[in-house]
Design a protein around this nucleic acid. Structure first.
Lengths: 364, 364
DNA sequence: TTGAAAGCGGTACCAC
DNA sequence: GTGGTACCGCTTTCAA
């Protein structure tokens, strides 16, 4: 029966109640109300309690606009991401930018970049600490080397959020990522379902030493095992995110495994594998699942040569990371320790929905 | 090489430049600057031009906090959605609420409800027009009956956004939805891939007269036709969103079609179909794709009895609708004529990621 | 056509 | 401990 939002029991103020209303109701000054609401020193606990109770019963909601206006608490957030691979990281930056836009100029985002994942992130981190910032968004390539940085930040009350990858066992506020185990598991489930007759599958990755990549393999295997299909894991290949190595290894693998029924490329390095398969004339008999989405991959999906690609949604990851950080800096609201983004299953039939999110070569 | 955001060419103000800086630079008053910036009547075009040029060159950015604070331009948005089916619409409301929260109290959202899609939305719409509002978010069950309302709103400069369903050929600002053709097409592609050996598929829907439902069927068929698999469309069933009717029809269908290999239930009314299939002992030989996600469906997915369910992401739809409307009311930024949400493919392996988004029975 | 000044709601500082 | 009040940047009104 209720047709509008319910508020606090008795109070249904037409004009939002402010700090002055509380002051008037208790016949005290606004200064005192402010001190009470913010647990500032130098206030009688009794008074404080009365104010809090009155605020509650009146349904007081602070006017954020006014708060920012006065305090000029220009939050500064520093975002450190690699330049390579541009297509992915640029989308992530876009997601952060978009999410921050509505809060400008209260929220100031500074982007800093370093060449590749894990290369040069430490000096940037230290620079940000020196120059002063309220929060950081980083993608730790090598968590161990960042541990002491994160500790230092925590001691100075600078919040750190990880995106895409995580730095476990550190004081980072949270980590936003497409949970790699799940991503691997989805690939495994798709291939199991796609190949009800069973068969051997190859798994391509970057480095099994990387936590993220290893997790995908675990998820993939878990999925295969729990499926009713007779698919099973065949060769596991590390291509070290290098196209040439990927091509060479894929070629060798295909020649040595004539019975292969499917391939899962769990990193963005899928093109060389596809090219090798095409050159060997094996596409017809291979079901292939890849990772992420970039312009060169589009036609392979459209043609059905790639059965599905698992898109890790960088835009969404960026948005969630920024929102979590902003929220924390604003109210101190702690996000859950991990924020998992559900990967999108991109296939021929829904490909079009994703094309406009693809970063386009701007200018030139 | 750039490591930070680029700004306006020459100007790199440490302290953001405000309206006063412009006034001072031109030795005029802030009032005049304001009139110039907002193209208000009663200002010398020459002065206006000078102000605009100066604002540009100084890199003026309005302080939104201050603007809202003063103008108290409390945007009021009215959201009209059905009560049934609560699980879906409540999620949508949550998405809207969450997206609006950061802008409180500048942005005020009022929720109004009516019993079922298309039943009672017109009087609510008219009430909102009478009481005055800046924008509306609605789910038109029967577009024809709303046409004149939407026209009236447009004439009064009240923006209207459709969610989930659309009211085509009206002045609505945009429509946010999981593009039904694509949803159907994804179901078709999944079933084609899942059943490489081919076979006949049944399609369950609500009313083929509903644009949304008919589109899903078209997408489904298109996908089947363009696939290499030998699957083909069998019986098409309208169950009118009624559980009993769904059950009865499913039972009859299963008995009459022993060769059926797969089923796509394109509305949320999937439970009766599943129960019928289970009772008939046909689950083992049926690949089933359903729609949306609700508590009762979870165990069917987890057990693998439902191969996949296409989640239309009400939370996201709500967020996008609210953001588009807010943006428009703020800057006049027009959204694209249609905003399509990519449906999520929920399967056993990624089910867990979606469980915490499910509306939970609060209190009782 | 323009200038001056009063707030919007909170915060922070000074005086008591 | 508390009250009073100037001020954040912008809009708006009133007077010139």
């Amino acid at each position: 029966m209720k047709t509008t939002d319910s508020r606090h029991p008795g109070a249904q103020p037409l004009r939002p109640v402010g700090i002055k209303d509380i002051a008037k109701a208790l016949d005290i000054s606004t200064g005192t109300v402010d001190r009470a609401l913010h647990a500032k020193p130098g206030i009688n606990p009794m008074t404080r309690a009365r104010v809090l109770r009155m605020a509650e019963s009146l349904g007081y909601r602070p006017n954020l606009a006014a708060r920012y206006l006065k305090s000029r608490k220009h939050l500064r957030i520093s975002v450190h991401l690699p330049l390579e691979i541009a297509l992915f990281w640029d989308s992530l930056r876009d997601g952060i930018r978009d999410a921050a836009a509505p809060f400008a100029p209260t929220l100031q985002v500074e982007f800093r970049s370093y060449p590749r994942l894990g290369e040069g992130d430490v000096p940037l981190f230290e620079q940000a600490l020196r120059e002063g910032t309220n929060g950081l968004i980083i993608a730790p390539g090598n968590p161990a080397t960042l541990r002491s940085c994160i500790r230092k930040a925590a001691r100075r009350d600078i919040a750190v959020i990880c995106v895409v990858t995580d730095a476990p066992d550190t004081e980072r506020l949270t980590a936003v990522s497409a949970d790699p185990f799940t991503v691997g598991a989805v690939a495994g489930e798709l291939l199991s379902r796609y190949l009800p007759a069973g068969g051997r599958l190859a798994f391509f990755t970057g480095w099994l030493g990387t936590e993220d990549h290893a997790e995908k393999l675990r998820g993939f295997e878990a999925s295969l095992k729990s499926s009713r299909s007779a698919v099973r894991l065949g060769p596991v290949v590390e291509a070290h995110d290098d196209p040439r190595e990927g091509y060479r290894r894929a070629l060798k693998l295909l020649k040595a495994n004539r019975d292969l029924k499917g391939i899962y490329v769990s990193t963005v390095n899928s093109l060389p594998v596809l090219q090798a398969a095409e050159q060997e004339g094996r596409l017809q008999n291979l079901t292939i699942v890849t990772t992420d989405l970039f312009p060169e991959l589009v036609e392979w999906v459209r043609a059905g040569k790639v059965a599905a690609t698992l898109y890790q949604r960088p835009l969404t990851q960026g948005r969630l990371a920024l929102q979590a950080l902003h929220q924390y800096l604003l109210d101190g609201t702690c996000p859950p320790p991990r924020i998992a983004v559900a990967p999108h299953v991109v296939m021929r039939s829904n490909l079009n929905l994703f094309l406009d999110r693809l970063p386009v070569d701007s200018e030139v």
